[in-house]
């Protein structure tokens, strides 16, 4: 496996290898010197055709902690905004000897196109493409869930999966690359996924996905759940009649204070509430829920760096499938030479 493009094609072994490696990486973030020499002399390009400060700085931090050289290339302020094609941009990066390209693009499939067109030889990591996929987000979500699930079940998280975990993904599934990537990855890891959304925000064809579908958030909460992942909803969707008003959406599909209290009433004391950010407080999630002890929002951000370090390291160090699970001797030593 040379690229990380989606989770549909990500096998269980590789997924667990990334999560296990991320666990090793997370230890680096705890150190005084948060740096490893693993990717010294390698060049990682963050190629962003769409604004996303959060994802870009997460990838940037990940690459820098691995001692890679990082080039940030954003469509704004570059020749892309003057109409250069993806092909020419890619070949320019190739001529600059990029080892990995982290690409965020408004068009679904752009990372796959980059990886398979022959324009470029670098490893390609999809940092979110259109409404298609966002595999590192799904991996950091899975990492967050696995840590929680291992604690609950009293098993080590390394090498583990999400077998038996009940996960709700709630909101604008139709326009969500986060939902698409999570459905496949969580299923691969053994979780039982239920999508909850207004019928207008579910894609035609969702019935073929490896998950359950419901229109009723309260009923799915009653049925018992271990993690609730709220998706960002753009209020402008109401202008295209996906729902009547922001208030009606919040009442029926928002994780509000009443539903937060309902988890307690249902004795679901270990259920976590997740959100990929940025949150629309008061629309899909209330401040009470976002700031409650159940919320994993900041854990997700923290884990994002570890997961992205793992993805960069594994892709640039060779065939991912050949990587043995946790034994990574390079991480045992601090990066003394880099940081005198």
């Amino acid at each position: 496996m040379r690229h990380l493009l989606d989770t549909e094609s990500l096998g269980r072994d590789n997924a667990i290898a990334i999560l296990d490696t991320a666990q090793e990486m997370s230890a680096v973030g705890e150190r005084e010197v948060k740096k490893l020499p693993a990717l010294r002399g390698r060049t990682v390009v963050n190629l962003f055709f769409e604004d996303s400060t959060r994802t870009r700085i997460s990838f940037e931090a990940a690459a820098k902690r691995l001692s890679a050289d990082v080039i940030n290339f954003s469509a704004k302020g570059s020749s892309v905004s003057k109409g250069e094609s993806l092909k020419d941009t890619a070949q320019t990066l190739e001529a600059m000897s990029a080892d990995a390209v982290v690409i965020r693009h408004w068009a679904s499939g752009a990372p796959a196109r980059l990886a398979t067109s022959g324009w470029i030889d670098a490893a390609v990591i999809n940092a979110g493409d259109g409404t298609h996929a966002h595999p590192t987000q799904a991996l950091l979500d899975a990492f967050t869930m696995r840590t929680h699930w291992a604690r609950l079940t009293g098993t080590p998280s390394v090498g583990g999966d999400l077998a038996g975990m009940r996960v709700l993904i709630v909101g604008d599934v139709l326009h969500s690359r986060v939902a698409r990537s999570n459905v496949w990855l969580l299923r691969t890891l053994g979780a039982r996924v239920t999508l909850v959304a207004p019928p207008t925000l579910l894609p035609v064809g969702v019935e073929h996905w490896p998950c359950e579908v419901s229109y009723d958030l309260d009923a799915t909460l009653e049925a018992g759940v271990d993690a609730v992942m709220m998706l960002r909803v753009q209020a402008e969707r109401m202008k295209a009649s996906f729902f009547p008003s922001a208030r009606e959406y919040a009442r029926r599909w928002g994780f509000d204070d009443a539903r937060l209290a309902r988890l307690d009433a249902l004795a679901l004391k270990d259920t976590i509430v997740m959100h990929p950010g940025p949150m629309n407080r008061g629309l899909e999630i209330s401040s009470g829920a976002a700031d409650s002890p159940r919320s994993t929002v900041l854990d997700q951000v923290r884990n994002g760096v570890s997961v992205r370090m793992a993805a960069l390291y594994l892709l640039l160090s060779g065939d991912m499938k050949a990587v043995p699970t946790p034994a990574l001797p390079a991480f045992a030593q601090p990066a003394a030479k880099d940081h005198p």
Binding site: E8, D129, H208
Partner: peptide
């Protein structure tokens, strides 16, 4: 349909 749902097109 089935394929557009997965590809997000």
């Amino acid at each position: 349909g089935k394929v557009s749902a997965v590809l997000g097109l």
